[in-house]
Design a binder for these strands. Structure first.
Lengths: 136, 136
DNA sequence: TCCTACGATAGACAGAGTCTAAGTCAAGAG
DNA sequence: CTCTTGACTTAGACTCTGTCTATCGTAGGA
């Protein structure tokens, strides 16, 4: 557990109680939390942690690539600590559950040059939608 | 043009000046606008139209399937009147501009049965990200 | 132990979207 | 054509998510 914390330390991060708590919350969850959910869980362990710090810390983790930001429905972003392996998401349209999935092939290759309109395309995000077994 | 307006009438919509203007704005644009951009353009033709009405009207169009809502990371949702033909989106990560693209192959086929976890997968949404020529 | 630059904090602010109560008007009935 | 009615519109307050700023605190090196 908490090799996320280990990797952050290796990157020269100053290790504060707040950052430790945020990393632990993310690492301990199997579902993808919103920033405010992370804040709520962090507050349980460290009552004086502020919302801004949670947002900052999450933002920093995202920018160094340790965590992925997932925008599922235009509501709050969710944070996915499982950044070390490329994966896509499978979302239940009823209950909103998100699962990580690993499709084969490179979806980027499916976009021909003639359809790129001069963009420098760097990434592709695939979201499968359906109904999970529990909701069916 | 404006068969969107025609289809709305056929669905028994009460035809008000506001709805007409919103439909015309959407129909006349080839880029995908945010709700507030739709409001700005609508205001140019009908100065007293309110923001709530634009949101309501867009929401209704989405719910009857005449318009697609595109949620890009954290930013404002954009509205895509091109709902009758399947397509995917190419988003500029700087300015948020969205273009429709048509990749080849069926992205649904890339998800093997063993990765579906019992879900009935019905649709897939692919978003390519990059930097557009103007922002480069 | 002491310093100081990096990190944390509270709370104001901003953007996107929703809700409500009250007023308006499209379109069917007479 | 006029009346009636309930669907539609409005202004603006409100909520939610996220950002910024000024100030305070502290991790970790000297």
């Amino acid at each position: 557990m908490s090799d996320l914390l280990e990797r952050l330390r290796e990157r020269g991060w100053r290790m504060t109680a707040q950052r430790r708590v945020v990393a632990e919350v993310l690492d301990g969850e199997h579902v993808h939390l919103t920033a405010d959910e992370v804040h709520a869980r962090a507050t349980a362990r460290l009552p004086e942690i502020s919302r801004a710090t949670v947002y900052n810390t999450l933002g920093e983790m995202v920018s160094i690539g340790e965590v992925i930001e997932v925008a599922t429905d235009g509501r709050a972003k969710r944070y996915d600590p499982n950044a070390h392996r490329p994966h896509q998401h499978l979302v239940c349209s009823r209950c909103g559950t998100i699962r990580d999935v690993h499709p084969h092939g490179d979806p980027l290759a499916a976009l021909p040059a003639g359809e790129r309109f001069g963009f420098t395309v760097s990434e592709v995000e695939v979201t499968y939608r359906g109904v999970c077994p529990d909701c069916a």
